[in-house]
Design a protein around this nucleic acid. Structure first.
Lengths: 134, 134
DNA sequence: CAGCATCCTCCGCGATACTG
DNA sequence: CAGTATCGCGGAGGATGCTG
C-alpha cells in the first residue's frame, strides 16, 4: 500500500540540531516553493498596502493562469497571509492585500534570498565545474 | 522607512527569477523545496562534521529511496553544499559531509524555520477556521 | 555497499471553455 | 470581472531488479 504520504517534518534549532517535530515544515515549504505564491506575495508587498484586484494582480504577476492565481490566493488566504474581500457589485470586484503575518513572512524570505544572491556566483561556478567533469 | 522596493521584491519576474541579472531564485528554491534536500542537510549538520556513509544517511533520513537519496546528494554536491568522497575499497565506501557553504546555508534556513515554528499555531487555527466556513 | 536503469504513478500546472 | 469545470501533459519521485 502506498499513497500514504509520509509527512516528514523537520525543525532545526539554533544549535543546528533537529528538534522533534514542532511544526510541519513541509506543507509551508511547499507553499513557498510552489510556482506563484512568492510572486503573488512580492507583488502585494510592492503595493504597500494598496489593495489589488484580481485582474490587477494577474497582470502584475504576469504569466499566471486564472486557475493558478485563484488557487494560489485561496491557499494564501487559508494560511492567513492574504486577505480577500469581495464586493457585491456588478461586475464583481475582489480585492487582495497582505495580512500582518503575510508581511512578516517577507523577513525570512528576504534573508533567504539574500543568501541565494550572495552565493549564486559561487554556486554557478561550482555547477560548471561539476558538469564539465561528468 | 522600510520595505523599500529594493529588498522586497528584488523584483521577481515571471520566469521565477529575481531581477534578470541577479540570481535565479527558482532553481535554488526548488532545491530547498524538494522532498529530501533539507532533511539530508539537517542530518549532516547534526553530525557536526563527522562524515556519514550513504547507508548511514539513508537510515538517518528515513523513508528515502536509494534513487532519491542519490540524486539529492548529487544535486547538493553540484551546488557545492556537500562533499562526496569515494574510497576505493571492497565493499565500496562513500562518505558525505557539509561544505562551508552548506553550513552557511543553515542560517537562512533556520530563520525560515523559526518563522514557521512561531507562526504555525496561528496558521493552523486559521486553516481550521477557513475550512469550517467552506 | 552504493549505486544505475527501468517502469509506473501521482499531481502541479497550463489550456480551454463556460458562468453569475 | 472573477471566477469554476474539465482535460491533458510533464516531471518529481516510489518500487523493483541488476551490478562492480
Amino acid at each position: 500500500m502506498k499513497g500514504e504520504a509520509v509527512n516528514v517534518d523537520i525543525s532545526i534549532d539554533a544549535a543546528g540540531s533537529i528538534a522533534p517535530d514542532l511544526c510541519p515544515v513541509r506543507p509551508l515549504l511547499d507553499r513557498m516553493a510552489d510556482k506563484w505564491s512568492l510572486l503573488v506575495i512580492a507583488r502585494l508587498a510592492e503595493a504597500r498596502g494598496r489593495r489589488l484586484r484580481f485582474s490587477e494582480l494577474m497582470r502584475a504577476v504576469g504569466g499566471v493562469s486564472q486557475r493558478m492565481l485563484t488557487t494560489t490566493l485561496r491557499n494564501l488566504e487559508r494560511d492567513g497571509l492574504v486577505i480577500r474581500e469581495v464586493f457585491a457589485e456588478v461586475p464583481p470586484r475582489v480585492e487582495y492585500e497582505l495580512t500582518e503575518r503575510g508581511k512578516s513572512f517577507l523577513i525570512p524570505v528576504r534573508t533567504l534570498i539574500g543568501w541565494l544572491e550572495a552565493n549564486w556566483p559561487d554556486i554557478q561556478r561550482n555547477r560548471e565545474l561539476y558538469d564539465k567533469n561528468e
